[in-house]
């Protein structure tokens, strides 16, 4: 039906975005067809938040004696971004194992649209989940100080999610097996615990606390606390004092590494 012409780079870039949006729209139709999966995506972090806040919160000593929810909420926001790693991986691995990726690759669409579409859809999903969790935070008494700080914090959280997108894509393309996701899901909680999301690293054994301080999640969460105007975790190491720049450096580093790896992996599906 269509005649082939050699497209200019501009036309190709335009198609890459247009096709990427079409691929992303597929996820939006999933949400419309099965709204419960989106609802559950919001409910899960809310339940964990309530469990930590009300069940364990009383036993946790927050620096400066602040309310635990004020300390916990930015941690949970960061945790939710971390959970995105496995959801991206599941989506990519499922498409690869069921032949959907091959169908896309055999079609006259922009090849990069497969990855672009995944990135758009997963970021949109994270925005929805984060919005739900912010509402939950407000309901349990968490309060941000300023609007500009709030926007900055949300931006940094989504930046971490953006970085983890590429890690998820790489792992999904590497394994091409939705079953392998369990391994990553199992690791998400320990990685989250080994940070400042739930407790101050100062309360951990020395070397473990140091690892927790250098966890990229800790930088994002610490920067978010600072921008939200919430109580911090009271660390005074170099990485703790430079939370804001590190909340940009870590995601940038992860993005560069895994963007290159996943694009290469995708291109090498034809090997």
């Amino acid at each position: 039906m269509t005649v082939t012409t050699l497209d200019s780079p501009v036309t190709r870039a335009r198609w890459a975005l247009a096709d990427g949006w079409t691929v992303a729209r597929r996820d939006l139709i999933h949400w419309a067809n099965q709204p419960m999966t989106v609802v559950f995506g919001v409910v899960f972090p809310v339940v964990i938040t309530l469990a930590f806040g009300y069940l364990f919160g009383g036993a946790v000593k927050v620096p400066d004696g602040a309310d635990y929810f004020a300390f916990l909420m930015p941690g949970m926001y960061g945790m939710t971004m971390l959970f995105g790693l496995s959801s991206t991986m599941i989506a990519v691995a499922t498409d690869a194992s069921k032949g959907v990726t091959d169908r896309f690759r055999s079609m006259p669409m922009a090849p990069s649209a497969v990855l672009i579409g995944r990135a758009i859809a997963d970021l949109l999903h994270s925005v929805v989940v984060l919005a739900g969790l912010l509402a939950c935070g407000l309901a349990v008494g968490w309060r941000p100080a300023t609007l500009s700080g709030t926007l900055g914090a949300v931006g940094l959280l989504l930046l971490l999610r953006f970085a983890l997108l590429w890690a998820g894509m790489y792992l999904g393309l590497l394994t091409r097996d939705p079953g392998a996701v369990v391994a990553v899901q199992t690791l998400e909680f320990p990685i989250g615990f080994l940070s400042n999301a739930f407790v101050a690293p100062g309360t951990m054994p020395g070397w473990l606390g140091a690892v927790a301080e250098w966890n990229p999640l800790s930088s994002t969460v610490a920067a978010a606390r600072e921008l939200f105007g919430n109580p911090g975790w009271g660390g005074d190491s170099w990485v703790a004092r430079h939370a804001l720049p590190m909340a940009v450096v870590w995601p940038a580093l992860i993005t560069v590494v895994f963007f290159v790896l996943s694009v290469r992996r995708y291109q090498r599906l034809d090997r």
Binding site: R26, H30, G99, D102, R103
Partner: peptide, 11 residues
């Protein structure tokens, strides 16, 4: 292909 490579959640 060997699998029915359609999106199962879409009509």
């Amino acid at each position: 292909g060997q699998h029915a490579a359609v999106d199962e959640l879409l009509t």
